[in-house]
Amino acid sequence: MKQKYAVVFERSPNNYGAYVPDLPGCVSVGDTWEEMQEMIKEAITYHIEDMLECGEPLPQPQMSIEQAIAFHNQPLPECVKQSLAEFGEVDGTNDPEFPPRFGMVEVEISVPHSVKAV
Rank of each mutant, 00 (worst) to 15 (best):
E49L: 07
H72S: 15
F71V: 00
D22Y: 03
G88S: 03
G88V: 08
S83N: 13
T32L: 10
G55N: 13
E34H: 05
T93A: 05
G30Y: 04
P75E: 15
L76I: 08
E49P: 03
E86V: 03
V118C: 12
A68G: 01
V107K: 01
K81V: 14
D22C: 02
I44K: 01
Y16C: 07
L23T: 06
N14R: 08
P24M: 09
R101F: 00
Y19L: 04
E35K: 08
T93L: 12
K116S: 14
Q37E: 10
D50N: 10
S110Q: 13
I69N: 03
E34F: 13
E86Y: 12
A43I: 06
Y19Q: 00
E42C: 10
W33I: 02
P75V: 10
R101E: 04
V8I: 14
D95N: 15
S64H: 07
T45C: 03
Q74A: 11
P75G: 02
D31F: 10
H47C: 06
P59T: 15
S28I: 04
L23K: 00
P59C: 08
P61M: 08
L23G: 04
K41A: 13
M36N: 13
A18R: 00
P99A: 09
L58T: 12
Q74W: 06
Y46Q: 13
A6N: 09
N15P: 11
A70D: 12
D22L: 11
L84P: 02
Q67E: 11
M51I: 03
S110D: 15
E97P: 01
K4E: 12
L58K: 11
I109Q: 11
A6E: 01
D22R: 07
